[in-house]
Simulated assay, not measured.
Amino acid sequence: MPTDLLVSRARALWRELAAEPAAAFGTPGRPAVFVAPKSSLAPPSWVGVVAVGDAALITAPTGRAADSVRIALDGLTTEELTDPSTVAGLLSTADTLGPAVLGYLSPGGLRPVATAEANPVGSLAPGHAALRAMLADAGRSDAGESGLADVTSPVFVVRNGTEVLAAAGYERWPRDTAHLCVLTAPGVRGRGLARQVAHAATEHALTAGLLPQWRARPPASRRVARALGYREAGRQLSVRLS
């Protein structure tokens, strides 16, 4: 699938998540800002900024917030719009989340895992006791970052006995999107386990005709996505105004 088609599908997803019928991406240097209090681009009452390709879509919880954002951020590039320090220098902000990088994978774009790295990959149902134990051991921050508690697909795992060392699945999002969720136990990171389970989850999503999406902040997560063939096509930033 050409990159421009991936961008088109990704933009369609985020327009729907904006929860505003008129929502659309702007043009380079001119982000589109909409009042959308029910937007999923950011936590409730926050401003959400999503850039895909060379254009951005911004949602704000109120008309006043939208006016402030529109005036302050007009003329910025997509990189500037999703840079916390740049945005904080132009808006009165109380907090920010991100930026997170958005990666997408086209059919036929999944790269194989090296045979030398391969471990047996099995699957568990979401909510399995072994997965709950893994999330508890990982801690609230890592578990929340992974999103693994929200998956709706089978969860693909590498295990040591009954202990789950790495797990990956996806949450079904609108527009036939599979939002990937991956977690490796802290003590076994750096051994290629995330790549193995994420490969299985991505393959499952592609077989189901879905668009795999990988949202990552940590550099290590981004490296895993790129190794599997994901193309970084966008960025997301959430802003809480003062």
Results as ranks from 00 to 15, higher is better:
Leu73Ile: 03
Leu73Glu: 04
Leu73Asp: 02
Asp74Gly: 15
Asp74Cys: 13
Thr77Pro: 00
Thr77His: 02
Glu79Asn: 13
Glu80Thr: 11
Glu80Trp: 01
Leu81Cys: 10
Leu81Ser: 12
Thr82Val: 15
Thr82Leu: 05
Thr82Phe: 14
Asp83His: 09
Pro84Gly: 03
Pro84Lys: 00
Pro84Ile: 06
Ser85Gly: 08
Ser85Met: 12
Ser85Val: 12
Thr86Trp: 04
Thr86Ile: 15
Leu90Ile: 11
Leu91Ile: 08
Leu91Ser: 02
Ser92Ala: 14
Ser92Asp: 11
Thr93Asn: 00
Thr93Met: 09
Thr93Ile: 12
Asp95Leu: 14
Gly98Asp: 05
Ala100Glu: 14
Val101Arg: 13
Val101Glu: 13
Leu102Ser: 07
Gly103Asp: 04
Gly103Val: 02
Leu105Val: 01
Leu105Lys: 11
Leu105Trp: 03
Leu105Met: 10
Ser106Leu: 07
Leu110Pro: 04
Arg111Trp: 02
Pro112Gln: 01
Pro112Ala: 02
Pro112Ser: 02
Thr115His: 14
Thr115Pro: 11
Thr115Ser: 13
Ala116Lys: 11
Ala118Phe: 15
Val121Lys: 06
Val121Thr: 09
Gly122Cys: 11
Pro126His: 01
Pro126Phe: 03
Gly127Asp: 00
Ala129Thr: 10
Ala130Gly: 04
Ala130Thr: 10
Ala130Asp: 15
Ala130Lys: 01
Met134Ala: 13
Met134Pro: 01
Leu135Gln: 01
Asp137Ala: 12
Asp137Pro: 05
Asp137Lys: 13
Ala138Ser: 13
Ala138Asp: 07
Gly139Ile: 06
Arg140Ala: 13
Arg140Phe: 12
Ser141Arg: 15
Ser141Lys: 15
Ser141Trp: 14
Ser141His: 14
Asp142Ile: 09
Ala143Tyr: 01
Ala143Phe: 05
Gly144Val: 06
Ser146Gly: 02
Gly147Asn: 00
Leu148Lys: 03
Leu148Ser: 08
Leu148Pro: 01
Leu148Gly: 02
Ala149Gln: 10
Val151Cys: 08
Ser153Asn: 10
Pro154Lys: 11
Val155Met: 06
Val155Glu: 03
Val157Leu: 07
Val157Trp: 05
Val157Arg: 06
Val157Met: 09
Val158Cys: 05
Val158Thr: 11
Val158Ala: 05
Val158Tyr: 10
Val158Trp: 11
Val158Met: 10
Gly161Asp: 15
Gly161Cys: 11
Thr162Asp: 15
Glu163Lys: 13
Val164Thr: 07
Leu165Tyr: 07
Ala166Ser: 12
Ala166Asn: 02
Ala166Trp: 02
Ala167Arg: 11
Ala168Tyr: 01
Ala168Met: 00
Trp173Ile: 06
Trp173Ala: 04
Arg175Thr: 12
Ala178Lys: 13
His179Asp: 14
His179Asn: 14
Leu180Met: 15
Leu180Ser: 08
Val182Trp: 00
Leu183Lys: 06
Leu183Ala: 08
Leu183Phe: 08
Thr184His: 04
Ala185Thr: 11
Ala185Ile: 02
Ala185Trp: 01
Pro186Trp: 08
Val188Asp: 06
Arg189His: 10
Arg189Glu: 05
Gly190Ala: 09
Gly190Lys: 08
Gly190Ser: 08
Arg191Ser: 14
Arg191Thr: 14
Leu193Phe: 03
Ala194Tyr: 00
Arg195Phe: 05
Arg195Asn: 09
Gln196Leu: 07
Gln196Cys: 08
Gln196Pro: 07
Val197Gly: 04
His199Leu: 06
His199Glu: 09
His199Asp: 10
Thr202Ala: 08
